[in-house]
Write a protein that binds this DNA or RNA. Structure first.
Lengths: 328, 328
DNA sequence: TTGAAAGCGCTAACAG
DNA sequence: CTGTTAGCGCTTTCAA
């Protein structure tokens, strides 16, 4: 197989310990033997076995990321940001995916832990006390992004509720007399961790109270296109759709376009997330930028603090950005 | 720390060997001791140390993926497909990113190899004999997707040239009298592995010869928007743009829209890749679907054959799909 | 049916 | 300045 310290040792006529010293620059060693060892090592293209090192030291310089789907823009952007940050600390990232399969999600986390990753960045689908317990048993530094699991696990994100309130404010002030909140079915709340959407809805419901002359509707169904169409057809006043996710907004715009209805002229619409697909869609969708890159960076730096044994806040909030596009 | 076979052994009053037998179902062991061991293990929530197992066996059930950016739709879709396939074999995927940094790309591959991943799926930026040599030294089963590195490393992809020819055919037959091929600068060819774009260009150049009455232009510059605009302004005949990448096409459409020029009415346009962003863009872009999911699946299955020691073809071609949208 | 011993490759404590 | 020894946790002969 490949070259080991043993080989180098025997070639150089020294012990493995000495070879090790040459690499680690630790302990006393004569410059001469050191150079000789390094030279031989380079010639043989020696590479330390990371498994063996990890086994010995318990340090792997890897951390684990478990998300459900990289086609999701949020995760794609997050992964990139995390990678870049990790690299700065000379850490590597082990990314695995589970397609919203909760059982698999746990298995992956467990497996990575068995692999001795030194920490986790998660955006879990699972939630609740049992999952929280599970994570505690895993007993590795862990930071949660985007979906709250429990009070005791460090979380990084934006203030979703505030953001939703800001959105409602902006829409209302543009004179819309009916605002429709579109989000995934809340019935899935027990199945999936849709903390973000819940928060956004709460923000919507709270803020809309401040505009008593604005009619409010909530559409929480996967069949939202039909419902939204019905609402439009019956609308007697200027109507805007506030979607808990840009994708919903894009789908609606596309759907309405079939009937010749256009955003801003015929209805107002706003998304949430600022996914990068928006760069290519005209008109520019108004939305909330959830600053995933910043959130991710922050998450990584918190993770490193945890790895170093420091105490960290269990909730870190990053500022979102309201984007006033061309659809309101 | 955590529970080891040693702990279980001492609790059960047996040797570690016996404990191991209980788990591996290998060698003779009485049903009674086995059950006892498994019970104790479960109670203590024993988890085998994957590093130790890997060190001993050389098998990690991981393979490595190295790409430059998951925000790139092609890679995002590829990763998902690869993950799903890997899971079927109970393998795990270790994904790392390098942002088109060739030095880093090599480091990552090396590092993963040092970590004893059992194989690689790569879509490298590096190419040429020295990179090819490098990969050979790594000496792990490797499959290349999307960018050819060398004749001797198994490759999976579509026939880019044929696809480009089909595209030209389709455009020409719709009556366009000028076709402009838009691609990244070829000058970067030595810096980046843009095999796909080269192939597409070749296909364009070859096929256009069959239409002597059609004028052809190649725009290979990052400043393509300006050039394309100039061409449009000077155009005296029906002009279409064939872009070596959907992104270019989307940018062009967006750019022209500012001036009130619309695809199909004022010019024809076709992309390449069929990225999923297209789902939300109107009009529907004509393009070539590079069937990344199929390519990825195939790549994984070939990788597993290599891991199993089977011989595999060093070039595997998957059928692309021509998508006739609304922009021609 | 079970156990002792050696070893994967690297490292660290302790001698010399 | 250098070597011996033991051990990380698991596995695999070989012997009992």
């Amino acid at each position: 197989m490949s070259v080991t310290t043993k080989d180098i040792a025997s070639i150089c006529g020294v012990s493995r310990t000495t070879v090790n010293r040459a690499f680690t620059n630790t302990g006393r060693i004569s410059e001469e033997t050191k150079q000789k060892i390094l030279k031989v090592a380079a010639e043989l293209e020696y590479r330390p076995d990371l498994l063996a090192m990890g086994l010995k030291s318990g340090k792997t310089r890897f951390f684990g990321i478990v998300v459900f789907d990289v086609r999701n823009r949020y995760f794609a952007q997050m992964l990139n940001a995390v990678e870049v940050e990790a690299r700065k600390h000379d850490y590597f990232v082990n990314i695995t995916l589970h397609e919203k399969n909760k059982k698999l999600e746990k298995e992956l986390i467990q497996r990575l832990a068995d692999y001795r990753v030194e920490g986790f960045i998660l955006s879990p689908v699972s939630k609740g006390p049992s999952f929280s317990e599970f994570l505690k048993k895993i007993n590795k530094p862990t930071v949660i992004i985007g979906n709250r699991v429990g009070k005791d696990i460090p979380f990084v994100g934006i203030n979703e509720k505030e953001a939703a309130k800001d959105a409602v404010k902006m829409i209302a002030e543009k004179g819309y007399k009916q605002i429709v909140f579109v989000c995934p079915p809340l019935a899935d709340a027990e199945q999936e961790n849709i903390y973000s959407h819940e928060q956004r809805e709460q923000g919507f419901l709270e803020e809309i109270k401040n505009y008593p002359d604005v009619n409010s509707v909530v559409v929480a169904s996967w069949d939202y296109l039909k419902e939204v169409e019905k609402i439009m057809n019956q609308a007697t006043s200027k109507t805007a759709f506030f979607c808990s996710g840009d994708i919903f907004a894009l789908e609606i715009m596309k759907y309405f376009k079939q009937f010749g209805k256009r955003a801003k002229q015929d209805y107002g619409i706003m998304g949430f997330d600022n996914i990068d697909t928006l760069d290519y869609v005209i008109p520019r969708l108004s939305t909330i930028d959830n600053v995933v890159e910043k959130v991710s960076e922050k998450a990584v730096s918190i993770l490193f603090e945890m790895i170093e044994g420091k105490k960290v806040p269990n909730k870190t909030i990053v500022d979102y950005i309201v984007i006033n596009g061309e659809t309101l």
